[in-house]
Simulated assay, not measured.
Amino acid sequence: MKPISKPATVQDVAALAGVSAMTVSRALNTPDKVTPDTAARVRTAVEQLGYVPNAMASGLRRARARMVAALLPTLVGPVFQELVESLSASLNRHGYQLMIGQAGYDAAQEEDWIKAIIQRRPDGIVVVGVVSSAGARNALLASHIPVVETWDFTADPVDMLVGFSHVALGERVAQFLSDQGHRHVAIITGDDARARARADAFISRSKALGAASADCFFTQAPSTLGAGRKGLAHLMRTAPGISGVFCSSDSLALGASIEAQHQGIAVPGQLAIIGMGDQSFAQDAQPALTTVRLDGTRIGEMAAEMMMARAEGRPVDRRVVDVGFEIVVRSST
């Protein structure tokens, strides 16, 4: 077996290019400070040797790692995909890399992850949701690392926030179904804290608007298509008079729609279904899903800009931003 050779160093690049190690550093980090010929020789040497700069060492020299950590509840499913893609693209355009972790809707796991990542001193931390653990919140405050909480809303964030109110969302969907004349409604939802707050708001507002019944089916987060089928099947057994169902994700809504078709229930003739997220498949479903549009792209872009501004010592115009949401009406209601 051929022995593994040592990785190329900046000194190796300098020797091959016929320049000093400092010149190599300048050519790679500030190419405008060297001549075009020197920059070209360094690039050629880098390619020939397969040299990869030591980002950690460079970060230590600059006192910045140019790395941002993001904590998600789950990596399964498409719910947060738009936000993550937007966040990553926005950071990459400015030379930052994104590292992703998963908390699994668990406050203790969230706290452990946050405390571990603080030790690595990232330039910023983006959290999907509001930090739920007092220990994690205190650790973040003590670290002085820029923090952006997203996908939720509170007037008292750890540092900065860009998101929307799940309570307002639940109330708005209740109003939408009420305006359509539905008096027997239900919700199929995940069981995490945000989902429960949204469900409570939906049920309370529905009853305040005169709903004769407002039932609920909880499923373990993250939600799935199968859980949507199971949820509607349960509701049709226990509350057969329902005419409008709010599902806390488009996956649940699609599952509910499939189950309705399986049972011979016409959508929307006998049952209106509304999802949440406006995933790419929602408009292509049959019938196309009415859903609550959440602007993950805007949230990701704003979170990146707020984090970079704080990391680079620039002022942040607004520390708390509510981006709202929009009900996209299609054929399922």
Rank of each mutant, 00 (worst) to 15 (best):
E82P: 01
V24E: 05
M1A: 15
I299P: 00
A285W: 13
S243D: 12
A256G: 04
D191L: 04
A168C: 05
L28E: 03
R196F: 05
A108W: 02
Q270D: 15
R319M: 06
G101S: 13
N29F: 05
V10E: 07
N138V: 10
R121V: 11
S5W: 00
D192E: 13
A253E: 08
L177P: 01
A211T: 07
I188W: 02
V127G: 03
R43N: 12
A15E: 13
M307S: 12
R293T: 09
N54F: 08
S90L: 01
F80R: 04
Y51R: 14
D200L: 07
Y96L: 10
Q286Y: 15
G210Q: 07
K230D: 15
K6E: 15
L72I: 08
A155V: 08
A186N: 02
A288Q: 09
L91Q: 06
L209I: 03
L60T: 08
D159Y: 04
A197I: 00
H262L: 13
G124C: 12
V46R: 07
V76H: 11
V316C: 02
I327P: 02
A227R: 10
K115H: 11
E301R: 14
G313Q: 12
Q48G: 00
T291W: 04
V10M: 15
L271R: 10
R64N: 04
A195D: 13
A197V: 04
D12Y: 02
T297H: 14
G277A: 08
V24G: 09
E149M: 04
V162M: 11
F325Q: 04
A8R: 12
D179I: 05
M306T: 12
E326R: 13
L87K: 06
E326D: 14
F246G: 01
D156G: 00
P157C: 05
R293D: 12
N92P: 00
G277Q: 04
V68C: 11
G324P: 04
Q263D: 09
G18N: 11
R172G: 00
V323R: 00
R62M: 15
D295S: 06
A227N: 11
A136N: 10
G95Y: 13
K33R: 15
S213I: 05
D106M: 08
L271W: 11
F153W: 14
S332H: 06
V321H: 02
L235P: 03
A285S: 15
H262C: 08
V52W: 08
